[in-house]
Design a protein around this nucleic acid. Structure first.
Lengths: 340, 340
DNA sequence: CGCGAAAATGACTGCGAATGCAAGTCCAAA
DNA sequence: TTTGGACTTGCATTCGCAGTCATTTTCGCG
């Protein structure tokens, strides 16, 4: 007949239940689960024992309501099927987890579907967001209005300033182009990414500009970042000219891989003797023996680390100014291209 | 000097703010955002206008506190770098999103690191969980104790019954083995998955059993589900015997791909003439021209659809009994193996 | 025009934990 | 023993919204 029958508690224990069980006040229980709060060691132990006995876990929802910190961060990612993003997502999730932050995941079917999810982002009162998708100025402004810090990942803000982490596409593409030109390639093909991809456009423009500066021609077609786009892009490029394509610059590794396969298998080219093909990202498959794609590897670990720390800084110090961090990629000279 | 100066509201609007602005009670505002509540059309419009004006979004945290439904589901996934899981994750997220459910993502470094995250799962009061990681009986019991429905993905419960969705490894492997045997292969190698992978063990056992029944020998080594394991596994197998390995059965596609590359490039084998190699999963790269892996494709769309609907059913009707749904895989006869 | 049922609305309380404040406890030094 | 200060502890309130209940309004129909 005591207050704590050992039956299975159907409803989950609250801090009051623990308090009663331990013979203290609810405040004491609360403080027990709060970093650096003032609780006597004896009391703390007693409370923790009761908590264990009752299977008590503080309700993060209730805590969030009063502290106005949900300890959740939204991660908004355009297409998880991109090979590159799963790696990024895993890194981000683990780094945030270490910092005691939970991830509310929003995955978009298309790069520009952000509006559909923002509504939910606002409702869940996330403390911040890491966005690897296209944000237009009004969407960015919405984050600012609500005081929700954002860090853009491999995107930059259009119009407004915003915190962002990027891999330096420009110097990366320049390095690739220079290597290819030095090796004597003359006629270049470029397979771009989809029009709404920021990095894709940047990479292609960087390549085009450098090629132009170095006096080389380039044909260009648009792809969709997937394997198939590599092959179809190559085919399209070859139909655009009667001359011999020397080198192929793809906006990402996956298209480069598709192009390599198509070149070797459908066209029976020797890659890189007949055609040099380069990519961008440095995803896992790019290193596979069959490909060994010459590419620029994004420093994912450093980039995710930066994204997380920038976000946390802005959560803790709301005033922090926008900052863009640009990381150099590492040129991986593989076997898919002849470089000078 | 009215009650709503058009300045930027620093603190986010609450239902009270909207109520005041619209000249109604807070209850009315609340009802406006609740499906099928009784609100007069005129009132609703007025309130929605005020909500828009004040940039009001209902606080899902506060709602969750009172309704005891967070509308969040935990997805616990072991290793996102596995190629197979990103696809699953994207599917799950989008299906849940359509149902108005948010995803709290927990990604594990290793299959058996679940304990580290369960604590957080309890705290966030998720309505349910989809788990693609190893759960031991006590962990499963913890879910049951707390009344949190779980659906296991490609895992089955050890000890206790639990809802689960799986791809039928056994019939899939049997089909592969039978095809290989019919084609006349004699000496088989098997590259298993890591010991803590449920499906990996199941696949390997199924293959072994069928091989045994059909009177074929099999050598076996253990891999780690990654590309490198394919090559090293093949090398190890070849060192285990002086005879000629006919066929190689890999517990997943990624290892099959690694093995194909190693066989072709390092050993200069003709795959499949010299050596047949099969995988399992049907991930994207398995279809690439360079590989065209003979494999069993998991019906990911149907499996994720099932996982989501089973979970929702159990969230809405807590009593629902455990159920195991087993989906047949589709044999994809590629170019990496000679089948009978 | 009036009556009753149905619809719409508002006052109020409680979900579970955090926290400012005041009161209480303990120990060391005077 | 007294006193001051450093810790501990409990009380009461608050966060934003949902849902109950009582009240008011609306509307159909006799």
């Amino acid at each position: 007949m005591t207050s704590t029958p050992p039956e299975k508690a159907k409803a989950r224990a609250t801090s009051y239940d623990v308090a009663r069980h331990a013979g203290v006040s609810q405040s004491a229980v609360s403080r027990c689960f709060k970093q650096g709060a003032s609780v006597a060691p004896r009391t703390r132990e007693k409370i923790l024992a009761s908590a264990r006995a009752l299977n008590y876990y503080p309700n993060a929802i209730a805590r969030g309501l009063i502290t106005k910190r949900s300890n959740m961060v939204a991660i908004i990612i355009s297409n998880l099927t991109n090979l590159y993003y799963p790696e990024v997502l895993a890194e981000l999730t683990q780094r945030l987890s270490v910092k005691g932050i939970r991830v509310l995941l929003f995955s978009l079917a298309a790069e520009s579907d952000v509006d559909d999810v923002l509504d939910q982002v606002w409702r869940y009162r996330v403390d911040g967001a890491i966005v690897a998708a296209r944000l237009d100025p009004s969407q960015l402004a919405a984050f600012a209005d609500r005081g929700v810090p954002v860090v853009l990942y491999n995107r930059i803000a259009e119009g407004l300033p915003a915190a962002s982490v990027c891999c330096d596409s420009i110097s990366g593409e320049h390095a690739l182009v220079e290597g290819l030109v030095e090796a004597g390639h003359q006629l270049f093909g470029i397979i771009a990414g989809p029009a709404d991809s920021y990095v894709g456009e940047e990479r292609v423009q960087a390549a085009q500009m450098r090629l132009h500066q170095l006096g080389r021609e380039a044909l260009i077609v648009r792809g969709n970042y997937d394997y198939e786009s590599g092959g179809s892009g190559l085919r399209d490029l070859m139909q655009m000219t009667s001359r011999k394509l020397d080198a192929l610059i793809c906006a990402n590794d996956l298209m480069a891989i598709g192009a390599i396969d198509c070149a070797r298998i459908n066209f029976e080219f020797d890659v890189p003797q007949d055609l040099s093909i380069v990519g961008f990202d440095g995803v896992g498959p790019a290193k596979w023996l069959a490909y060994q794609v010459t590419t620029v590897r994004q420093p994912v670990r450093r980039m995710t680390e930066a994204a997380v720390s920038m976000l946390i800084e802005r959560i803790e110090q709301p005033g922090t100014l926008p900052e863009q961090r640009l990381f150099a990629g590492e040129l991986l000279a593989g076997q898919s291209a002849r470089l000078g």
